[in-house]
Simulated assay, not measured.
Amino acid sequence: MNRVLVTGAAGRIGCAVLEALGRDRVTALVLPGTPVQADRVVEGSVCDVATVRAAMGEVDGVIHLAARPAPHRGTPYEVFGENTLGTFTVLEEAGRAGVRNAVVASSLAANGLPFATAPLSPAYVPLDDRVPSQAEDPYALSKLTDEQTAAMMSRRHGMAVVALRFPFVGGFTERLREHADKVAADPSLGAASLWSYLETRDAARAAVLALRVPGGSHTFHVAAPRTLAPYPTLDLLRRFHPTTEIRAALPGRTTPLDLAPAQHLLGFTAEHEL
């Protein structure tokens, strides 16, 4: 591609995406005063049409990562309102600018489990994007809405739009090891995310690969193929999600997410495991 726009480029995944892209021919859209290394930087909000329109210059691919990343990162109105308006604005302006490929950061939280006030269980595993959502928080709802916005924008503008449902993401030295140690001591801490995770570099690589999808709208789970919990997955599911239907063999520490669509269409398999 001639130029890729990365929103939220100073965030955890955003920095890794810039590294994966090589920082050349990359436009980074960040909040004012945010340090970032890219050959073109635009400061402002992804909710502001003029800012986003200015950032689309010479762009033919978009990786949209900017968002409030949890329901407690603002008021409910800010979390839902800014996340959904930002995604709508970025994709609408991308379509108007003739961008052919866009990637949107969704979340495993779209199913409603990670931030629920009381423990929930999915209807079945391996978890795919067709499992009914039990969203009850503004972040989960914002990500479901983002996925619907992505599908609409694909139809509206003829873009290929991929929504990636990221699980817990971090680097080995940054946060994954600490989280894994906590889950090993108390596996209930990983139950809402089905003990899934993705190393930051793999998250970035999945986003870059998703720019190559030739057409249509797609939603994929991306995660490491094995859980971060040092226990058999079936034992964990029977203990913490006893009502969940198990529809496939899950030997050893197999992550109970459907990773096959990302493998088949993106050619993505995580390379960095704990």
Rank of each mutant, 00 (worst) to 15 (best):
N2A: 15
V4T: 12
L5F: 13
V6E: 03
T7I: 06
C15Q: 15
A16I: 04
A20S: 12
R23T: 10
P32Y: 12
G33K: 10
G33R: 14
T34E: 10
V36Y: 05
R40S: 06
V42G: 07
C47Q: 11
V49C: 07
A54G: 13
A54P: 09
V59W: 08
H64C: 06
A67D: 00
E78T: 05
V79N: 00
G81M: 04
E82M: 03
E82K: 00
N83D: 01
T84F: 00
G86C: 01
T87P: 01
T87G: 00
E92G: 01
E92C: 03
A94P: 08
G95L: 01
G98V: 05
V99Q: 04
R100F: 08
V104W: 02
S107C: 12
L108G: 04
A109R: 04
G112E: 07
L113C: 03
Y124V: 07
Y124E: 11
A135R: 02
P138I: 04
S142R: 00
K143F: 02
Q148S: 14
A150K: 04
A150D: 05
A160S: 15
L164R: 11
G171C: 12
R177T: 15
E178N: 10
K182D: 15
V183L: 09
A185Q: 12
D186M: 12
D186Q: 14
S188A: 14
L189F: 12
A192P: 03
S193E: 11
S193R: 09
W195F: 05
W195H: 06
T200C: 04
T200S: 06
A203W: 03
A204P: 01
R205D: 10
L209Y: 12
R212S: 13
R212C: 08
G215R: 14
G215D: 14
V222E: 00
A223I: 10
T233I: 03
D235M: 04
H241I: 08
T243R: 15
T243C: 13
T244K: 07
T244H: 09
I246Q: 10
T255P: 10
P256K: 10
D258Q: 12
A260I: 12
H264W: 15
L266G: 11
F268V: 06
E271V: 06
